[in-house]
Design a protein around this nucleic acid. Structure first.
Lengths: 175, 175
DNA sequence: ATAGCCATGTAACCAGTTACATGATTTC
DNA sequence: GAAATCATGTAACTGGTTACATGGCTAT
């Protein structure tokens, strides 16, 4: 049997996933990661540019042609494909939510009215916008799994909006 | 006007929040953080033990009595209270979700049947358990804000369960 | 041609995680 | 009283973020 592929982290796996659809350059990966799973998995430019050379060193990617502006194309290798498959199967169960915003909301009653209102309003505006984008993604999804994932992100954002509403109401009442 | 309190990160803020209810030792903080907001904001022991001396150095906490087993009590200072208030108001809008599990689900159709089933099953079992705990928390919540937050976590977990179901169905269909 | 701009890539920093040492407490 | 155990605390490492340098493209 072939040597076990090296273990990769979630960020690297995200990139390997995209590279299944063909070679990409760093900037393209950043953009595509944002589009495809920005709603439930954030990836930053710097992470991408740090991972790519490391993955190439590990033999999971093969550097390809140089593009414009010194951009470097990378292509998936066979080992890279196997590393991705291994990551997929190595399910770490559920993953923890970590939301500073909710933490703030828990203590929001100790804020003066104006600051509290601003906090809630800003969060609500941001989430409303997110929500619209995510609903559009649901409408545009054709594959059933992609559609289900899109619906998940919509549900998540809707839950947050509901929370913000409830907090808003609770504070008015206690005022 | 008084000097601006030092900026703190979300982890530190979580601890400062708890310490509003009285002095605590490191271990107590770990336990209480897990109970109070483990469902939406994870805090690990090591983070706590690194933050506490740093916060004391910054003057946000004041070391108190030594407890059993060399455990050190810390109490909130006036500066600490102001730093917490400042953190509360410095709302960074919405926070990004980062879920390796969803990332896996997106690609789950490329896994062999048995591995796919195991991944989905394990996640489902873990989430079902979480869900039960969270619903109990809703039932036990008396304060309206706390209740709304608890309901948010329930909604989040329910959305994840729904996603897992949908993925499961989609895969059966395509098999 | 040149000035500004924007994509690319780099490096230093900060936060989160994992794995390990230490010593008090409890149990036999 | 000795051994095992478990809470406490520490240290090293990995991953995520922020801030900066560089150089090709574009528009005037």
């Amino acid at each position: 049997m072939p040597a076990a592929p090296p273990a990769v982290n979630a960020t690297a796996a995200a990139l390997l996933g995209i590279l299944h659809d063909g070679p990409r350059t760093g900037g393209q990966l950043v953009a595509e990661a944002g589009e495809r799973f920005g709603a439930f998995f954030s990836v930053t430019r710097s992470q991408v540019y740090r991972e790519l050379p490391a993955l190439a060193d590990a033999g999971l990617l093969k550097p390809g042609k140089q593009g414009a502006r010194a951009s470097q194309q990378y292509a998936l290798t066979a080992l890279g494909k196997r590393a991705f498959r291994a990551w997929l199967a190595s399910g770490s169960g559920t993953d923890a939510l970590r939301s500073p915003l909710v933490l703030r909301l828990l203590h929001v009653e100790s804020l003066p009215d104006n600051e509290r209102a601003e906090l809630v309003q800003k969060a609500r505006a941001a989430d409303r916008e997110r929500w619209a984008v995510e609903r559009a993604a649901v409408a545009g999804a054709t594959e059933p799994v992609q559609r289900a994932v899109a619906e998940f992100t919509v549900a998540h954002t809707r839950a947050m909006l509901k929370l913000l509403d409830a907090v808003s109401v609770a504070c008015q009442r206690s005022a």
